[in-house]
Computed example of a mutant assay.
Amino acid sequence: MNTYLLKITTVLLLVSSCNSYDMDPAQQQMDIDMSDFFVYTETPSDLLSKTTASKTDKRSCYTMLNLNRLLDENPGLEKRMYAIEYQTRKFMASKKPSGTPGSGPPGSNQDPTPEPSIPYDGTVYIPVVVNIIEKYNNEVSDAQITSQIDILNEDFNNANSNTAGVPDVFKNLVANYNIQFRRAAVNRIVSSKNSWGTRDAMKSSKKGGIDATDPSHNLNIWVCEIGGGILGYAQFPGGPEQTDGVVIGTDYFGETTGPYGDGRTATHEIGHWLNLRHIWGDGGCSVDDFVEDTPVSNGPNYGCPGETINCGSIDMTMNYMDYVYDDCMYMFTIDQNTRSRALFASDGYRSSFVTSN
């Protein structure tokens, strides 16, 4: 654990209502252990100090740094994320009555006895609005868009052919998310801007970008040149509605070329949009990703590594939430699926996607 721990807040607020993401600390008795929950995460220099990977091997996802910025700019965001995490752990505990939903620091978990959420176990259909900001007409082809939707449907329905190569130690953990992505609309504009950065300018028509389309019922994907070697970034549940969605670099959207040309940047970023942290928990061996069946690790893996051991266990390098090449990531776990599924429960943050089906 590094200097980012100085920014981790000990949150003592309690959830006041199943359907509210604003909490009143005097309303309810705590029945879910939240002692390991944190929001602020490491800086890029902290992360890069843990690896000797070459520059060309390094996947660059800016989601956690984007989260840090949003937390600084939105005083109520930490409170909302705490409430979403509370609902998530309550849901996971109801699915696993004999266990607990996190695997944080030893001794941090209790045996909760929560009232379960009403789950939605059917297929979740997610309309996708693709917002393309390109340097010339059709820089991003229709074939790229089609391939990206197809790749998402493969990955979130356990249809990635590479999954056949899952090591035996993880074979019984592979999940089918049962999510179907549908292309709802494609919005295009041409812009001479060379790069858009990571402060959400591409999400605002006032800043030359494209406004989000009804984020409570659509997944908005912005495709543009981000700059700085960044492949993409996402917004976690709870952030500002007008910027909800994911951003993907033009060269990494759908089937293109190179080690990040198989469309898995979108899979990774949508994992964040579905409330997944990075597989290593964005910290050291004592920090977790709030998912029980993913091994603890102390940092990302790059390239196409073989068996890698950190923190006394084998890393799940092939997980979509690691940093390996596109061709070498090919699974979500059962508990990752359950964590994301909490969003679509009756009291979940993204329940509107179910009620609108």
Rank of each mutant, 00 (worst) to 15 (best):
E154L: 12
D142E: 12
Y125R: 15
Q180I: 13
G122P: 04
P114N: 05
A143Q: 12
D142G: 10
E154I: 10
I149V: 15
V124I: 13
N131R: 14
P116Q: 03
N158I: 05
S117V: 04
A184N: 10
T123I: 09
F156N: 03
D121F: 00
F170H: 09
Q144T: 09
P127E: 11
V130Q: 04
D150I: 06
I151F: 08
R182G: 00
V169W: 13
P114F: 10
G165K: 08
P127A: 02
Y120K: 03
A175T: 00
Q144L: 08
A185L: 13
A175F: 06
T146M: 07
N162K: 13
T146Y: 11
Y177K: 08
R182M: 05
S161I: 11
D168E: 12
D142V: 01
P127M: 11
I126Y: 03
T163S: 15
V169H: 15
V140Q: 05
Q180R: 11
Y125G: 00
Q180V: 15
I179N: 02
N172F: 02
Q180A: 01
K135W: 06
V128M: 07
K171S: 13
A143L: 14
D168T: 15
K135T: 01
P114T: 13
I126Q: 00
V186C: 01
N138T: 01
N138R: 09
V186S: 03
I132V: 14
D142N: 14
Q180M: 06
T113Q: 12
K135S: 14
T163H: 06
Y136A: 13
I145M: 09
